[in-house]
Write a protein that binds this DNA or RNA. Sequence first.
DNA 1: AAGTCGAATGTGACTTTATCACTGAAGTGG
DNA 2: CCACTTCAGTGATAAAGTCACATTCGACTT
Lengths: 206, 206
Amino acid sequence: MARHSILDRLNDTLRKETLEKARVMQFPPGQILFSAGQHCHGLPLVIGGRVKVQMTGVSGHSIVLYRMEADDICTLSIGCLMTGRAYRAEAVVEEGAEALMIPRGVFDRLMDQSAGFRLGIMESYGRRLDDLMLLVEEVAFRRMDKRLEEWLLSRAARGPVVITHQALAVELGTAREVVSRLLKELERRDMVKLSRGRIEVTGLLR
Amino acid sequence: MARHSILDRLNDTLRKETLEKARVMQFPPGQILFSAGQHCHGLPLVIGGRVKVQMTGVSGHSIVLYRMEADDICTLSIGCLMTGRAYRAEAVVEEGAEALMIPRGVFDRLMDQSAGFRLGIMESYGRRLDDLMLLVEEVAFRRMDKRLEEWLLSRAARGPVVITHQALAVELGTAREVVSRLLKELERRDMVKLSRGRIEVTGLLR
DNA sequence: AAGTCGAATGTGACTTTATCACTGAAGTGG
DNA sequence: CCACTTCAGTGATAAAGTCACATTCGACTT
């Protein structure tokens, strides 16, 4: 069990009850937690690993909306659980994840009886809202070349970035060709070295 | 006081206490409820009217994120209140609005003691998340001409749409020139009639 | 070691959208 | 009626998206 979990905010009784009624599940990388059109079967509280949430437009293009990490509750699932609507997005495990699947009854009870849990949930919601607002601004107003450079820099700290142009296009919500061309241009300017499925950042400065 | 308010979900004691400690405020059209950089001074629960929430990028361009109507709580304010961060967006009254300004203490108490209130809050959050996800998809993948036509159709039911090209550009998150050109093209195709600050939809079909 | 095949990448041609720098037209208040 | 501000129109150019196809890489087979 992870440290600093939102579950630590529960008192012993509630925590015990929760751990009894909720299942801890392991998800290998690549596993789909849920996909668009599906209905919600329980509330995932991410304990470890990383899960990306992405959505696909009618055009068939996808974009990564945000990521969930330790201590994040899946706010999308809350919405779907409450209203009975289907998911609009898809959640894919990136780094082998561990999550606690909380049944609705237990969630309601925790919301009712633990101020700490409530606060955790509200914080999670706040982060999501913030992430999405920032994303709207990015997509609507910022230039793709700058966004690409920024994305690369944010991942380049520990060695070469292992990702295909297609996947990178989904990260940025653009087309693969656009990414390929921008990367080629960066390579011409000696800012990156490209090889199949791999980008080495050599000369990008923040 | 509006019917079907989230306040109806409170029991008499809580409602009475809330109405004592929270102020009902009136806001005329055009009034700024809060703007980017400001800090939160209480939680607006919209009772009537309409408030649009928009954000401005570093480029200086703005985009409308979503609208709040009766029974919506300002989820952005919850986030700012909880974390102490400043607002990232701006809220502008469109139709003269009435809102209940709830102090933090009262909000916490309502969340603690009323399951109905909690549900209302979660629903509000769910709507916001949904709105923003849809918006991301729109902005990232849909064509501007289609989005413009759709926007016009959604407003054209009751007579001509009174809006400037600039304001319409903010609705769609694009530049004024783009809106002007697309509208001119629609006019050439006899789908709209244009005059200063006014667009009459004549031949657009869904 | 050579051949095969699918995934990944490269690229030209063209369209759509964004940006910049203006011009002109329409209302508004003196 | 005139000055002024706000709103709208437009050409030139750059950035980004789309479509269609060519090429290359690497893993796996034989």
